[in-house]
Design a protein around this nucleic acid. Sequence first.
DNA 1: CTGATGTCAAGAGCGGTGCTCTCCATTTAG
DNA 2: CTAAATGGAGAGCACCGCTCTTGACATCAG
Lengths: 231, 231
Amino acid sequence: MNASRTARERVRAEMIKEITDVARKHLATEGAAGLSLRAIARELGMVSSAIYRYFAGRDELLTALIIEGYNAIGEVVEEAGARARQDDYAGRWLAVCRAVRQWALANPHEYALLYGSPVPGYKAPPDTVTPALRDTVVYGRILTDAYENDALTPPDLGLSAPTELSGDMERVRELMPRLPDDLVARAVLAWAALFGIVSFEVFGRFDNTIYERDALFDHNVRSLARLLGLP
Amino acid sequence: MNASRTARERVRAEMIKEITDVARKHLATEGAAGLSLRAIARELGMVSSAIYRYFAGRDELLTALIIEGYNAIGEVVEEAGARARQDDYAGRWLAVCRAVRQWALANPHEYALLYGSPVPGYKAPPDTVTPALRDTVVYGRILTDAYENDALTPPDLGLSAPTELSGDMERVRELMPRLPDDLVARAVLAWAALFGIVSFEVFGRFDNTIYERDALFDHNVRSLARLLGLP
DNA sequence: CTGATGTCAAGAGCGGTGCTCTCCATTTAG
DNA sequence: CTAAATGGAGAGCACCGCTCTTGACATCAG
């Protein structure tokens, strides 16, 4: 009976996978706004109402795609970070940044779904939190590794993080243990800057102006590395 | 006859303004995806098809809102930059950054429309280009002013912009004349970083982690100022 | 003043959407 | 074997963008 029950659940899981596969394909071509349950059902040869046996609605399907997306970018970032020589912290940072950018350029609509405007009316459920942090975890580990091996030598900017930030910095420190507040603040800045650069490029803000995008990206990311104190 | 024709055109212009006003209100509450021509018409007490006398379709209305948005943020940025002491370049930079952030926080949906994911299938017409650059023009002027008064002393990061970027940097230099390539590259980085930070905050990426957002923003923006060489 | 012209609101209608509900065949569990 | 759970199909609701036709009205030329 356990086997038969598993049989049903297996076909159900397969159905869910088919739906999300088609949905991801539509998302890639049309964007999140163009994601239509009816179109998905049509492509799967079933009627639209049948989709509701598997997803409570459009939002739930979107959530599944968001989680998949975070895991996808998290995975490429993890792999990129792992491929670099582990004691080459700047190299790991560069690899991570390139992985983020490459994935974003290859999957612009998914990137927009994850890092662009939030879908109005859509509230991210808690299950998205962990996948959403996969890439950031890799980033944090690089910084902590570098810091513990005395490989972080950030340039003095004549600034230090205000003490009122200590609570916030403490929370961020979960991702990058042991770093002092000043460095945590810089880490947040660099991470936000990375996605600012990538978003500018993916969302078309470089059109008709910047053409040597690989070179500019690498250069900017290296500048951020220096800001963080990576050699 | 000219007067009468103007009379007609005046009521037409007023109609257009009423439509965009209502549309902006809906945009602010529902977001771009929830912008409905029918709902706008309903609120104006007319039938949806009448809207098409003034706008060719949803996209054209969206374009009007985008242009208005760019002008709105451009205006607050211009004013903020003008209010600061003109020889206080770092102060002007800080004022501009704060203006961007404040406007974004006050108008999150409009900000998302301008700097978030592009609306799928929507192609920005050329009329949006000039308004889109209003804020950036202010930014460029600050940098050029500072540079010409020898007030830009960027820290040496041991990097210089690769020569293949010279063409791109030349184009960007239209906004910030005379700056050397290295500084132009840093300027692009800092500008993208600014919008990265603001987007993180507006799009909810700081939720449950960062609470002292004013302080963190100011600190990060000051760090960027140092990176640019602003005192 | 009259007739032609241009403008615009209204309404009907098309094809699309998310979502709900009922009906029914099949599969599963006891 | 029977009762319950499952899931597909279909109809239908309210909404959407958009198009087309119709009729009221204001403007203009003769």
